[in-house]
Design a protein around this nucleic acid. Structure first.
Lengths: 155, 155
DNA sequence: GAAGATTGATTGTTCAATCTTC
DNA sequence: GAAGATTGAACAATCAATCTTC
């Protein structure tokens, strides 16, 4: 039986991600950042802070994972915790100046690395790919929002 | 400054992977498999075994990671370790009949789930996407083989 | 009771060191 | 000395339980 097209897409995306992630780890390591720390930093900016819950929702990881990553970023002075004035239960993760500088630098380094690694498509192909991937992502996000991940029969 | 197309592709693939992986974990959990265990099983078949080194190379993870995943799969009776007749240093991971049955079942479950989740592209779009992703993956693989991951200036 | 966040315990992954065989 | 594999220690991520505030 032929492999379903959706599954072929899935495998390709999976393989590509693994290849990219492997490179990311090496590159970000030169900035003394883990990929997780970078992912959190990327969601912050200098203007206003962001709730930890918002971060874990966006990154689809456990609350406690964010707590610990923010701990690390606070230890290295890249981020500060601030009480949310609108809700005394909540904490905001805020970029420090040092964090903003680090983020800019890491982003430039990472972006250059990614660009050099993903250079084998023509401009037209890249545009097409971005369009198709965007549609795919939006579909997946919509499913997540509608909480419609189907429970299969299981094994 | 506008975001480089390569980086847009990167972000989309990253986001899509995170969304898909989150669903994978839930689905495979119904088969009592972790995504890592499934990834290893997928690389095996009933006919002949496969060296642990080959598995870690393919999955881009540490040797010791494979050792431990194979330990787990052996504990649950899905896989057996066999001495490699061609090299007395090497071990082969071999699917058991139970493992083959489990793999078939998990694959069917997972494939159905993936297909239902990635259903928002037309057939034509899917074909295009597969072509483009395939080209991208081959480029990345080629870089890996030539060990040409560039060392950036760092931060 | 629910949401935001944290902590301790468990599991998963990697790193460095070790052993055997090439 | 290098390659295949394993082990113990360190790090990373999750889960369940807990605390505070809504």
């Amino acid at each position: 039986m032929p492999t379903a097209p959706a599954y072929q897409q899935y495998r390709l995306i999976h393989d590509i991600y693994v290849l990219l992630d492997d490179g990311d780890r090496r590159v970000l390591n030169t900035c003394n950042l883990t990929t997780s720390q970078y992912a959190v930093l990327r969601l912050l900016n200098l203007e206003k802070g962001r709730r930890l819950t918002s971060l874990s929702d966006q990154l689809l990881c456990a609350r406690s994972t964010i707590t610990r990553i923010v701990d690390q970023l606070e230890d290295t002075g890249l981020v500060l915790r601030v009480n949310d004035p609108e809700d005394r239960r909540a904490q905001l993760a805020v970029l420090t100046q040092k964090g903003a500088t680090m983020l800019d630098s890491a982003r430039a380094t990472h972006c250059a690395s990614v660009t050099s690694r993903m250079d084998n498509l023509t401009e037209g192909e890249q545009e097409q790919l971005i369009l198709l991937l965007g549609k795919l992502r939006n579909g997946l996000r919509a499913q997540l929002d509608s909480n419609a991940i189907p429970d299969e029969a299981g094994c």
